[in-house]
Design a protein around this nucleic acid. Structure first.
Lengths: 348, 348
DNA sequence: CTGGACGCTGGAACAGTTACACTGGCGGGA
DNA sequence: TCCCGCCAGTGTAACTGTTCCAGCGTCCAG
């Protein structure tokens, strides 16, 4: 293991210069900084202040500032992560990567500077950050997403299979026209859910109609909008799969408002990260993702990996489950259709 | 500012002994540890590893492990705290006090060892922890609770006044029998809400009936239970104040299940930390606490205090607000009463 | 009585950071 | 042209705290 003094000796400079270069302090030339960083990287330098080991892992958010709309999913995920790090008596700290990371430092240097031994990465966009961290050789695990890069450890849930089951459940009840209400941005989760939907339809020989697929924000308002937009069509669907908890809640709320009886008039399958499906009326049939388990297992593996109890790469895809509750039933004799003025009318 | 070497010189011992004593390492006599700690306390010892300043504040939870039932309130509060620490480019780390704090070390030593410059304290019981931290002189702010100790900085919201307004709102609509559904453990929040209820009733000259006050867990199930228990009474209330978001959600859900029309058959006032009141059916009239602002202002003050932009003590009581939505109306001609078998019947 | 185990302590070497001094190049004014 | 001052860049040394290993005394078993 190299030290600032080893690096200083090798380059023929002083430890002060090395320290300044490593910490992005002013007063050191760009040329010298580059040489120091190269040597540090090559010799595998890790700072160890006073040799004291610190048992902290970071929760790395790429976006700044950390999302204000701290939704249910994030909260449940966090609860799992906290439980997981607690098992090995690690601490958890939030790290705002975009805010603090210097352009010229590697991820390994950045996280070392932050004093964490490993990171749980929660990406919100396609930044390539997980791959870059893994390439730097820093202990990491990506949570609630996946990567093709073989160096990236991750845990994700696959909602494709269960999404297919959910739609097949609707088909089995007799539904022929099934809508899909999906998040506007197509991350891997929502691609899975759409793929499951398409597979179920084609498996049952039901022709796919692009007009039955609508997109909006993953919010209650978005859910209400997608519901309306589907039910205002000429021949509306008799069942809808909402691929997101918040949009499901919004749609169910709108149904109560409009007097649409679920599941008598319309069947709804939703998506659930926690237990929201139990709190709506009616309780809704849902594709369920155990967000807490995702965070728990990610933190567990990372901490065990750091204590030497685990090794190798970690690539886990957890299945989701289908919970059939009260929002799905047989299709109505006459499907519900909304007029332009958002009033309930009977379809012809 | 003293250092381990200064303490060692003063006591005539070695720095190794001082370091061991300060970090609760084995291999140092209890007598020696006590002397070292006394001297450290007296000279105002603060560790500064390599003189590197660290801008981290801790979120101190007294209970272990950190609550698994990470509810909406905690999540919203945390979102505010994260936003607040972000403003001054501080980091946030979770600190599990019961898990890590050694019995023989002071809070100041403990937090210094953890590497945080200040703490936001979120107590879940009457542990006396906030007072002890303040007595140690460590920068702290208590959030979502208050203390009589003049050294304790805190931010809390006062739901007493608005609770009174809420009940007066019901009285103004013509309600005479108003139930109170309250959390089983009487923390300062729930004491406020009960006090507001009592004040409103006595102000309107309505005699208080203890049978109209019921207590249960702050959960959807608890809310449903309290609803049932109130509506099964001989002369049930025509309006109920649920002092907690989750119990309100549970009660409204139960009403939909039982066919009780809110607000036509029964008026309900709830409590909201975020925007849950907008997601239920009907949207419920609520005493609203801005949990995000609580966390935001706590973090803001603490970080500003650490950067020298603020000083003095911080004691803020934020008012709650009454949001009148769709769950409150005039009392019904014949109040709803539930039989023992939980079926809707008409009261005589 | 003696040897080993053990508890406690100190010396020294280690980790990284930073105040201060120094050097050399550059520009501007006499 | 020359000299002074400034400034960027670097080194020296002093500082922070931690830990390995040796030493010293005590106590107990053989």
């Amino acid at each position: 293991m190299s030290s600032v003094r080893a690096i200083a000796d090798e380059l023929g400079v002083s430890v002060a210069t090395v320290s300044r270069a490593l910490n992005n302090h002013p007063g050191v030339s760009e040329e010298m900084r580059k040489r120091v960083l190269q040597t540090a990287d090559r010799t595998g330098y890790r700072p160890s202040v006073g040799r004291k080991p610190t048992n902290v892992i970071g929760l790395a958010y790429p976006n700044e500032p950390v999302r204000a709309d701290f939704g249910a999913f994030e909260a449940v995920l966090l609860a799992g992560v906290l439980e997981g790090v607690n098992e090995r008596k690690f601490d958890l700290t939030f790290i705002n990567v975009n805010r603090d990371k210097n352009r010229s430092e590697t991820y390994e240097q950045f996280f070392n500077r932050k004093g964490v031994r490993g990171v749980i990465v929660r990406p919100l966009d396609n930044s390539g950050m997980p791959e870059a961290i893994a390439a730097d050789g820093f202990p990491m695990v990506l949570v609630a997403d996946r990567s093709d890069d073989p160096r990236v450890n991750f845990i994700d849930s696959d909602s494709r299979r269960t999404s297919r089951q959910a739609v097949e459940h609707l088909i089995g009840l007799g539904h022929k026209r099934i809508g899909l209400a999906i998040h506007r941005v197509a991350d891997s989760d929502h691609r899975d859910r759409e793929a499951g939907y398409r597979t179920a339809l084609s498996g049952a020989g039901i022709p796919l109609e692009e007009s039955l697929i609508v997109r909006a924000e993953a919010s209650p308002e978005g859910g209400a909008m997608m519901l309306m937009s589907l039910l205002e069509q000429e021949t509306p669907p008799t069942a809808i799969y909402f691929t997101n908890p918040l949009s499901t809640v919004g749609a169910l709320h709108k149904c109560l408002q409009l007097g649409i009886r679920v599941p008598k008039d319309l069947s709804i399958v939703g998506f659930d990260d926690g237990d929201i499906r139990m709190r709506t009326f009616p309780r809704f049939t849902a594709v369920c993702q155990d967000a807490q388990a995702l965070g728990l297992e990610a933190a567990r593996w990372l901490t065990r990996s750091l204590t030497g109890e685990a090794n190798g790469t970690f690539r886990e895809i957890r299945p989701t489950t289908l919970a059939v509750l009260d929002s799905t039933s047989f299709p109505p004799l006459t499907p519900v259709r909304l007029s332009e003025r958002s009033r309930v009318v009977q379809a012809t």
